[in-house]
Amino acid sequence: MGLTVNNLEVTIERRRGTAVRPVRGVSLRVEPGRTLALVGESGCGKSMSCLAIAGLLPRRARISAGSIEFEGADLATMPEAQAQKLRRRHVASVFQDATGGLNPVRSIGWQVAEAVRLREGATRAEADREAIRLLGRVGLPDPERRAREYPHQFSGGMNQRAMIALAVAGNPRVLIADEATTALDVTLQAQIIDLISDLRDSLGMAVLFVTHDLGLVAQSADDVAVMYAGRMAEIAPVARLFAAPRHPYTQGLLSALPGATGQSVRLTTIDGTVPPIDALPQGCAFAPRCGKASALCRDVDPTVHAGVACHHVLPAPVKTKRVFA
């Protein structure tokens, strides 16, 4: 089953009739019982892709092309109400700011029980029992007592666990974790990662794990998708990606990590900065920062072939007349 995204494109309408496309033709597949990590630097479109999949795009943004196939249907084109119903039942999300995602005036237990009721149609008492079970499951000590407490009485790590309990209530098929551990300390982060992996294995969830932290990717993902300027640069199993990155951007990212070059020597850097989405260069968006860039790269935007979008990894494609300038 899982979830398959094909050529997803997100467009944000701006004032004065202009539009930008933060996601430009992204394809990926999240499979049950596996974790796909979506990585990239700020503004690469990873969060926007997630929001599109979760049906949580901001008001001015919309899916302008592509499909999101789930259970044999396309969430991108089916009627909105039907898509949201499917998502509410089967697609759960956890975001970075757990405390902000919880309702401050309802107890933690009430909020988890509400999710259980909505997803499973359980009775009040059943839902309450299930909520306590879930809170215990995510490692909250003394869940019966804690369920009666409110978000302000919880630490950041406890709120993040409560959010995960809320997300996995009713056994969703897909869990989207967008920088879900970024604000946490490393010891807590490790525990939350372990927790998500456990739940993935026992519930058979497909996990889409969005992060900027390559260390976390190496520790928790089965497959990795690297995004750059709204496009997919490379997608590969985690061991392969770290052992033999093929896209120059992935290579640059990995060698820029402290520890990659040995201590006290200069770090390898990628010159320049990510282009703003309203001023993307023609051709490959990475070309201005790429040591391998040729005239072809500056002219034709490469598409993903065998997991990598780079003219210099596969034989160069035959140049065709561009449809869009």
């Binding site: 790590g157 406890m158 982060q189 260390g215 190496a218």
Partner: peptide, 27 residues
């Protein structure tokens, strides 16, 4: 030791074998 062990290392071949059961940070 806990801190070094918990820090995610960018190398899939050195995944943490042991689970960290170190509870929440103190107030």
């Amino acid at each position: 030791r806990v801190l070094i062990d918990a820090a995610p290392k960018p190398d899939p071949s050195t995944r943490r074998a042991i689970r960290l059961e170190v509870g929440d940070p103190p107030n």
